[in-house]
Design a protein around this nucleic acid. Structure first.
Lengths: 230, 230
DNA sequence: CTAGTTCGATAGTGGCACTATCGAACAGCT
DNA sequence: AGCTGTTCGATAGTGCCACTATCGAACTAG
């Protein structure tokens, strides 16, 4: 398969393929001469993955390269998940380290309450602290109690994610699938939440109208905590 | 308060403030002369919101302007949520309309199964179809049954979101808070899911090691469906 | 009166993700 | 062998975006 074929089959312009090759996102093909290089099905697959991670997942070329590098490491599959996590961009600029420190206790409190065992150096700690700081500065304080139900939902989602990964028989591409589950399911969940918000708000508005009340009251109930104790 | 003060209090460079004024993200101050324009606390608040939406939420300046415009509409609070939703960027390029159509039946099936009442023109329909298409092309088919538990989690999250909004007493800024809940809680949920994945994968790896099994089995249980029938 | 600030307008910068062009080296066909 | 078209790697250019810098004029505070 030549570049032109690769281009045609994936809908990616030749120039872009060359660019990805230059940037190390695509492994080079087999050069059979100065004007003939052959590519295989793995290039098609990789190209699709690149486009999904960048166009849909919103990753930069650099971040995509990191993720792909993590995928290509022949690591313990679940360890790969960690590497992929670390390769992800978590927008926290250096200037707000102080702000992050301010929220660190609350992050610790939440992690403790959930019984989550999270590495001290996880970038997600900082990212979470930064987001909570934003919310707080905007006048929307979220306490640990406020966050706990969300954390329970996240835990349930994570269990679904890992269930799916364990069912994969193709061990060779497990790392790839892990990255896909982590990254491409994220927009799916975000969209589902927005859809649910639309429906839920419709329901509540209707309720408020028909009962002429001051608005519906909370319909939330405690979420059960499915992992069997700690 | 002068620009210099506004700049100092928010940590935003004067040049950037001027830029936001030009772009219509910040309302102009009260001009008291050719070299003196006064700004108020609402400008501080608005500036913080802009920075949160762009730097944290990842919105473009244009998308931020749309969201802010939605916020400034004196609409029914829950309608505002809809307007905010429509102002959000959903990365689906025109070229993949066919692919979207291919997945449309599955989207309908999911919405039907959840009993969600979603407008036919919602951009989220297309966005979801596009994401499912990506997954399918990458060899990770998600059936309606696979997605349902995620949708249940999303519904639970949406209920939490709206509970919070209903508890807000400051009706004037409700639209603003709605945007914050929709947009800035999104990265929080994403981070929580990643943290949960890290913890869950640690647990499963440990389990697999101690039991010397072929890997842990599913720990998922059915999620209950909290809204009282349809 | 003077030094410094702010105004609006315009132009420039840096980063990113491509995209275009070029000459040389072939490949495939006749 | 000759011709046409493709591909090669390298380099340079493009378009967009989010700022950032500069400028002269107008003003304000001390």
């Amino acid at each position: 398969m030549k570049v032109s074929d690769l281009s045609r089959l994936t809908g990616t312009p030749v120039g872009t393929i060359k660019y990805y090759l230059r940037e190390g996102l695509l492994p080079p093909g087999r050069a059979l001469g100065a004007t003939l290089t052959m590519y295989g099905d793995e290039h098609i697959q990789r190209l699709r993955l690149i486009r999904a991670l960048t166009a849909r997942g919103g990753l930069s070329i650099a971040a995509t390269r990191d993720v792909l590098a993590a995928i290509d490491q022949p690591l313990d599959p679940l360890a790969t998940l960690g590497v992929v996590h670390y390769a992800l961009p978590t927008p926290v600029d250096a200037a707000e380290t102080d702000a992050v420190g301010e929220q660190a206790p609350q992050v610790d409190q939440l992690l403790g309450a959930m019984g989550w065992d999270i590495s001290e150096e996880s970038p997600h700690r900082r990212a979470l602290a930064a987001s909570l700081m934003d919310l707080s500065r905007l006048g929307m304080e979220y306490s640990t109690e406020d966050l706990l139900p969300y954390a329970e939902l996240a835990a349930a989602a994570a269990r679904l994610d890992l269930d799916r990964l364990e069912d994969i028989e193709d061990r060779l591409r497990l790392a790839e699938h892990a990255a896909i589950v982590v990254l491409l399911l994220e927009p799916v969940l975000a969209i589902l939440r927005r859809l649910a918000q639309e429906d839920e708000s419709r329901h509540r508005t209707a309720w408020a109208r028909t009962t002429d009340g001051a608005g519906p009251r909370s319909t939330t109930r405690p979420v059960d905590h499915p992992r069997e104790s700690h």
